[in-house]
Design a protein around this nucleic acid. Structure first.
Lengths: 356, 356
DNA sequence: TTGTATGCGTTATCAA
DNA sequence: TTGATAACGCATACAA
């Protein structure tokens, strides 16, 4: 007689179907090929359906020692880019019976801003804004996918104890962890070639104020590409990834002496949005007075006026590939290491420089 | 002798400390007030530290029947708003030893777009983009916090079997589930009063194309407030929450016959961004020719030019209050039901209408 | 104050 | 083909 106040267990199903509890486990685990008769299997499935049976995950995890759950560590939830990464990862995970849990690293982005003092019932909450998922993580997770922008938070604590896949991270510096990368270098090359082809020679690089491999690549590649064309100069200015930060930095750069740049290459779309504001304040028009490019192709890119020429990153594919790599690692296989191609999207923010 | 290939268990700790396993459990569970001597307690803590002991969550969950984990169901991850909600919820959860798992509802927003055909190793992946967390959720979750925009996905499947808190949902229609709401109605009132005070009388309401309580409130309140001032008219046009959708809908509305509206009230900031583009295409200037307002106060609001007058929603406080309410429900207490105040932020997109 | 024993629900090993 | 039985690691009621 099943206890009425609690959820049905596999024993309840067994009793209802008139079989042993082990048989239930085999049938529902789809491991009964030659071990249980078709008739009993069907009886079991029917009983399970009738009772609304759901296996107890805690018990299964305890028994198996695995959770079929992985953690996706992202630098911040504030961008739609990582929403896409999650979607892709979750899709692949699902196809393999895995789940994905999101962990937005509190300190992953920029110089850790002082956590705004929030109050709970009048009392200030403790500083640490988000719990550390690694405290007991090793017992609850089979693996970790982490963006390089959150790498510190990861390895500093506990992450490398678990099978790990790094996203957008230096392949040679990742301590042997598998890496999955977008071909950012090629994206920057496309941007540079596009602008050089239009005739631009004086570049301003609005760089993200974050020490992360993915941003170093942008700088290096832009420098390399422009260096191949004589008479080309690149000036660099750094800004935190925020509208305000980018606006301020751009204004400062434009106020500097010397000839004005004709092309402004931004490390991402958000920086470009801030740059637009700075340009407008100084009465400069995009693209007539100066061309601007971004990188990401967020919704923001088309919200701007004129629409932003930028590099489209396939976030979902990125997430898919990340999860596939982790599955490979868990499986003892070698993960695929080909970079993910990216694509320049030319819109209204780039044009030939004004005839001088 | 602890097995070297596996993580230390409470038994290993007990052995190292020379006590029983039960003692370890008591000490580490902070339930040893008068049951264990201070000396042994310290020995246990030291051994645990030395071994790097982490309790096995699966075992604890199985034993206790609770997981101290709740699910946060959001309509989509694509907005920074829900990032804030998560942060707030996770902060409060953490302070109570709970964890928060994010579930971005695939069908929460708008007419469910056909999932893009993605391929895995050349084979198309199954349609369902994201796994159903409710399949075994009851075994793995203690409760659910759900945005009203994802309510269907929720109750249609399994959500109401679990302690539930609805966010931004009709308090009278939520089947007895606790609700936590932002005072959207007051926000719309503030917007309406602001515009009416500036002298506007012909309104266009750019409404979200989603059947959700929170959007019904906006429409109702705008109608009510404007109705109190004689000579005021409100026309409504619906659009999906996307830049493109909003642009198209706004262009269509502006092409309609009759006097042009002097104020455009948008259901959220993203719609306002689309409206900006439509206005610009028609050569209308904000705010000289037409005032525009949003609702949310996303980063997008200040990326626009001119910056958007909008209603600031405190997403983090929203999340905190949601989690507090769920904790109250789990605790058998009555959740606080006061609405969360919101605040009009006046920027450059609103001005008195042109003298006619 | 300490140690022993039991069960949570599952999967997997073994005999029947 | 099937059915007992053990074990995963922890928390707790109970005996010492």
């Amino acid at each position: 007689m099943p206890r009425s106040s609690t959820r049905p267990t596999s024993r309840d199903v067994a009793q209802a179907a008139g079989v042993s509890q082990a048989a239930v486990s085999l049938v529902l685990g789809d491991k009964w090929r030659g071990r249980v008769s078709e008739a009993t299997a069907e009886r079991v499935r029917e009983a399970a359906r009738d009772l609304g049976y759901r296996p107890n995950l805690a018990a299964r995890n305890l028994r198996l020692g695995r959770t079929r759950t992985v953690l996706l560590v992202v630098p911040a939830l504030t961008t739609e880019f990582f929403a896409g990464v999650y979607t892709g990862a979750a899709r692949v995970a699902s196809a393999h019976g895995f789940g994905v849990v999101l962990y937005p690293s509190p300190e992953g982005i920029g110089p850790s801003r002082p956590s705004p003092t929030t109050t709970l019932k009048g009392r200030p909450l403790r500083a640490a804004p988000i719990p550390d998922p690694f405290a007991s993580a090793q017992a609850a997770l089979d693996g970790v996918i982490a963006s390089s922008m959150a790498a510190d938070a990861l390895s500093a604590i506990r992450g490398d104890q678990l099978p790990l896949v790094m996203l957008d991270s230096d392949p040679s510096g990742s301590l042997g962890a598998a890496t999955v990368n977008l071909d950012i270098a090629d994206g920057v090359r496309q941007v540079a070639d596009h602008l050089l082809g239009l005739g631009h020679r004086r570049f301003l690089h609005l760089a993200a104020d974050i020490a992360s491999w993915t941003f170093e690549v942008r700088a290096r590649e832009l420098a390399a590409r422009t260096a191949s064309v004589p008479g080309t100069s690149v000036r660099t200015v750094r800004a935190p990834i925020s509208i305000e930060g980018a606006r301020t930095a751009t204004e400062a750069a434009l106020a500097a002496p010397g000839p004005r740049p004709t092309a402004l290459v931004c490390d991402d779309d958000k920086l470009a949005a801030g740059a637009y504001k700075a340009l407008r304040r100084r009465g400069l028009r995009v693209p007539d007075d100066i061309s601007v490019t971004g990188l990401d192709d967020l919704a923001l890119a088309t919200a701007l006026d004129p629409e932003l020429t930028t590099v489209r990153l396939d976030a979902e594919l990125f997430g898919e590939r990340g999860m596939q790599a982790l599955l490979a690692v868990l499986d003892g296989r070698e993960p695929e290491s080909r970079d993910i191609p990216v694509e320049l999207v030319v819109r209204g923010s780039t044009a030939p420089p004004r005839a001088s």
